[in-house]
Design a protein around this nucleic acid. Structure first.
Length: 236
DNA sequence: GCGACAG
DNA sequence: ATCTTGTCGC
């Protein structure tokens, strides 16, 4: 039986919001088996979405942004934002619950269908192997990857100083992602699979999106957009 | 027991 | 995440 991904406009209505750490962990444990690790995922996606969230100084109000780019030209094809309040306290490992509602609301407002979601945070490189990228991927049933700026779990050695070099990110005996150098002599990023992608393809897509900067252009665009939206909230 | 801990 | 200027290097 063929199952089709849900319309993005319907996903946010289906999420559950845990009230405690135990409940949140239970949600992750229940959704974890739904992660699709088969891959390989789209080799040449025509649309790639970047997602990011910015917080007000009160640490409560926030703005989420999604930008859809043509990965070949890096042209921005579509954008969407959503404002709201943090849906959960910040707890390492449960970070996704803070931003998920706002991100899903923003995704629902897109008019261009993204073929890949590039998340600001980790996917499988997570204590229970279910970081934001997995969560977002499973809920939307779209290919998703995580690109973190700093590690959450795992150890590594290297990688070489040149762009394109990488080293396995290991947590115990498991390979949970890759430490990938996106620019020569620049601090590497942490790439991990979210959903419906394999690690090789995830890294290939990240490299395509980083011709000039350390972070994917998708993430950079989303970062700028949500910060601008936040300034509107503040009043400036 | 202590420190670390995506954003 | 956010608070924050200048500054070293290419």
């Amino acid at each position: 039986m063929v199952t089709r991904p849900p319309e993005l406009s319907t996903v946010s209505a289906t999420i559950e919001t845990p009230g405690t750490v135990a409940e949140a962990e239970a949600v992750q444990d229940r959704l974890r088996p739904l992660v699709d690790l088969a891959g390989p995922g789209p080799t040449a996606p025509r649309t790639v979405a970047g997602l990011d969230v910015a917080y007000a100084e009160d640490g409560d109000r926030l703005a989420a942004a999604v930008t859809v780019l043509d990965p070949t030209t890096l042209e921005v094809l579509d954008t969407a934002v959503a404002t709201g309040r943090a849906a959960f306290d910040y707890v390492p490992g449960l970070f996704a619950f803070r931003e998920l509602p706002a991100l899903l609301t923003a995704l629902a407002r897109l008019t261009v269908e993204p073929e890949l979601l590039v998340c600001d945070g980790h996917g499988l490189a997570h204590p229970r192997r279910f970081g934001l990228a997995c969560h977002l991927g499973v809920l939307t049933d779209r290919p998703a990857i995580g690109v973190g700026k700093t590690p959450l779990v795992g150890t590594w050695a290297g990688p070489d100083r040149r762009r394109g070099s990488w080293a396995p990110l290991r947590d115990g005996t498991e390979q949970v992602g890759r430490v990938l150098r996106t620019r020569d002599d620049v601090k590497p990023v942490f790439v991990s699979v979210g959903h419906r992608m394999d690690l090789d393809n995830a890294c290939a897509q990240v490299l395509r999106l980083t011709p000039r900067y350390r972070l994917p252009e998708t993430t950079r665009q989303a970062d700028q957009l949500c910060r601008a939206e936040l300034r509107k909230l503040a009043g400036v």
